[in-house]
């Protein structure tokens, strides 16, 4: 099957592999140690899956904001996103 039209690059492949592995990992984690919904600072019940979604969505916005307001050096945005993700998993 010729998939050249999908124009894969090592960077985007790594990006999707990491997201895929995270989903698989979280599924295994959920099977091994089932978690309950909890209510955090957003005052809505969230599961670890919800918190992962919020982390990924927020990280995308952080990267875009950094790119638009500061510049193309995205390692800082990545660092902020990691901190943001930890905060989401801890408090949301």
């Amino acid at each position: 099957m010729n998939l050249s039209w999908m124009a894969w690059t090592p960077a985007t492949a790594a990006f999707f592999i990491v997201i895929g592995l995270t989903l698989v990992g979280m599924t295994i984690w959920q099977i091994l140690a089932p978690s309950e919904e909890r209510v955090g600072i957003l005052s809505i019940p969230t599961t670890p899956g919800d918190r992962l979604f919020l982390t990924l969505l927020g990280a995308a916005y952080i990267h875009l904001a950094w790119l638009g307001l500061v510049g193309p050096d995205l390692w800082w945005a990545f660092g902020i996103s990691v901190l943001y993700g930890l905060a989401v998993f801890r408090w949301v």
Binding site: W5, T9, L67, P72
Partner: peptide, 27 residues
């Protein structure tokens, strides 16, 4: 969606020829 992500970081030419551009298009 994956294909769009792939296109968003590259310059594309006819005949499925692509060059990596990083975050240039987003900027």
């Amino acid at each position: 969606l994956m294909t769009v992500v792939n296109y968003s970081v590259q310059e594309s030419f006819a005949g499925n020829v692509f060059f990596f551009e990083g975050s240039k298009w987003f900027e």
